[in-house]
Amino acid sequence: MKSSIDVAYVAGLARLELSEQETETFQKQIAGILDYVEALQQIDVSSVPDTPIDPNLPTNVLREDTQRESLPVESVLRNAPKSANHLVIMPKIVE
């Protein structure tokens, strides 16, 4: 089965504005990539057990619940295009 990705749909989800020309170009490019990956489908994996988690991975790499220093608020806001009263400001979110 050939996989396909609808570029226009994905662009919509990703809030990307693509021109018709771009959509067409990316659609072709993505199809090429999918064809390439499709080669994997030819491998017979029927003898490999279905494991949602690789049993060879290390587990429980966790941290203790201890506090570390946060950033000064000036640094936090440095990447924000707009801020006021230490809040990051953006166009009104309409629910």
């Binding site: 201890t66 506090q67 570390r68 946060s70 608020v73 230490h86």
Partner: peptide
């Protein structure tokens, strides 16, 4: 005491944007 994936304090009602990394 701290957030889920970093060591910033998990506290209600702190000064805005002071508990971020």
């Amino acid at each position: 005491a701290t957030k889920m994936f970093c060591g910033c304090k998990n506290e209600y009602g702190a000064e805005v944007n002071t508990q971020v990394c």
